[in-house]
Write a protein that binds this DNA or RNA. Structure first.
Lengths: 344, 344
DNA sequence: CTGCGTTGCGCAAACGTTTGCTCAAGTCTG
DNA sequence: CAGACTTGAGCAAACGTTTGCGCAACGCAG
């Protein structure tokens, strides 16, 4: 015998398999004695229901798929943690795949997950959001609809596609305002990965912030990057050769900022005296850099949980409007008043 | 109609479902024309096989479960990445759950995964390794055995339990030797989480290293911790109040070391001049601390991949001996020669 | 005592595959 | 040309559940 199943219990309890099934799921129309007897028997035999068989008939796997760009990114990890806790407490498992920041890997990953019949899909930091409308999610779920896709970090409105994100532009703009109020006039921006919407939004926010503070945007103040440690590291040399030299820099994320901080320390550029640095995400590590990093807090775990809630809501057929959360600046030691007189 | 299935194709192709099934899996005894016809039809209809139904009959889900203590830990994330890539290229999906460093959550997580009928289980940094022998994995897989469990970061030999780890003791000992050769005589150790075997092994290695270099172990030089940023941070004050004051410290992991570095910078303790610091793991960030962290490289991705290979091998019924990898010291700026004369 | 609603349970179909067995037709071998 | 083997395909069971429907027994109101 391969495994104790519902019919084994049925045989021993002298009842039909249906009765056992119903007893186990607290069906109302079953006598208390039978239920007790069956439950006891199940317990005693160490019965574990087959999720697979259950899924086959119900059309639900109680599993949600997550495609993440890269768990190694602390932001992603933190969001994932939120997703996991929310999913777990809702009785859902997590099937995950990584896209390695590659759009085509991303959609194949999504396809694989959907083939495994996940009830819903959460995509963290998609690089190919437009392709989700074409996704082959023909298979209907129990509610008669296709699996909902919720994009985390993207604004997107399409049937069956939901979104949870934060106000990237607003936060970036606020960061620029902060720097401006500290007296900085030449503020650089280390951009994030192309293709990601958060990257665009933060850049837009940076520009808005400049405008709001009557600072003139200069193309050369915008440095390319991909939101990784190396990007910040490399950005420093670029910053140092500029004329006029920027006295502050806003980074796409904390990782880039940390890389920049490291490069500054290595090059003897004193932060914040010679250069103020602002990150984005408020990853745990940002409180432990030298100097501690001023950054924009993102409610990472909350975003993950919101994504799960949105997904579940969509599954239940309830309306699930786009969620946009707002960030908040965490002031630490990497920013200070501008010590240089403006001689531009 | 809920979804295009194998029988839909069969009907259209005027053949039996069995034939379609066989055509799709390249069964030899089927005529090339039929196969072509069926494949074309399947393609055209956008047929996607139901993994669930397949799993029900084959007893395999082509999924391996991963229980991780906390993805937020860069070491774990890096290992997970290795696991994911190896699993993906072997055609396996990943069902993951987090234990939040809690033994009881760990085993419930494992149970949940097994209930989802994962073919195998990989546990990263278990805190409750002994309980895996009792795990209710009654359900047999295709090969007629129970799901193999591979413990990553633990040495454990029990039927059906495999292990991949590194030589923690050796690496820790080597780190101590390095510090000793730099002239340090008072070397402290910030310990890792209790319950984890790697923690014990590194502590043991630290002690071995002291012995090998004729240094006397002092209980007060061993500080408690749990492998988190805060632990290093808090360790510094303890170190500063000791008599004689240690001139070097080995940390359970990079996270603790980074916390310690931050505290040192805050307190004006110069690293490495007044204090040498060595971490463990060589997480990407450790190259970007100030100063850059000397640490022990762990082949994180390789360990993850090895775990998957071990798991697959066990599934195939092949022998899968315990794997132990060796670390290597990465010398960076946080260590230096001892500037203090030994007046103990 | 009739009729009706309720309670407790079984029957059987269904979910979408895979696969052992059977079998007819065709192909060889001797 | 008989027998044996091969090829191509279908039948039906099996995997372990859930669930709509039917039905007997029973309680109760009239």
């Amino acid at each position: 015998m391969t495994h104790v199943s519902i019919v084994d219990i049925a045989r021993l309890a002298q009842v039909s398999p249906s009765t056992v099934s119903r007893a186990l799921q607290n069906h109302p129309r079953i006598s208390p004695e039978r239920r007790a007897e069956i439950l006891a028997l199940a317990e005693q035999l160490g019965y574990r229901p087959s999720q697979v068989a259950r899924s086959l008939v119900t059309g639900q796997t109680h599993t949600i798929g997550v495609v993440a760009s890269d768990v190694t990114d602390p932001f992603v990890a933190e969001v994932l943690k939120g997703v996991e806790s929310a999913a777990r407490s809702a009785g859902y498992g997590l099937l995950i795949a990584m896209s390695n920041r590659d759009p085509s890997q991303e959609i194949t990953a999504a396809t694989v997950l959907l083939d495994h019949q996940v009830d819903g899909l959460i995509v963290i930091s998609s690089r190919a959001p437009d392709r989700y409308r074409q996704l082959p999610r023909a298979r209907e779920n129990a509610a008669g609809g296709v699996a909902p896709v919720v994009l985390l970090n993207h604004d997107f409105s399409e049937a069956g596609v939901y979104s949870v994100r934060m106000d990237n532009a607003g936060a970036a703009s606020a960061a620029v305002t902060l720097l401006s109020q500290l007296g900085h006039r030449h503020i650089a921006f280390v951009a994030g990965p192309g293709g990601g919407q958060s990257s665009h939004a933060r850049l837009a926010g940076y520009l808005q912030g400049l405008a709001a503070n009557h600072l003139t945007p200069l193309p050369e103040l915008i440095l390319q990057g991909a939101g990784m440690l190396e990007d910040g590291w490399e950005a420093l040399t670029a910053l140092q050769t500029m004329q006029p030299r920027p006295t502050a820099v806003l980074c796409y994320n904390d990782l880039a900022a940390i890389g920049l901080l490291a490069a500054a320390a290595r090059s003897g550029v004193s932060v914040p005296d010679a250069l103020s640095v602002v990150g984005f995400d408020n990853v745990p590590l940002s409180a432990y850099t030298v100097p501690a990093l001023t950054t924009v807090e993102q409610p990472k775990a909350a975003m993950g949980q919101a994504a799960v809630r949105t997904c579940l809501r969509a599954l239940a057929g309830e309306p699930a409007p786009p969620i946009v959360m707002s960030g908040q600046i965490v002031l630490r030691a990497s920013t200070g008043v501008c010590r240089l007189s403006d001689r531009a």
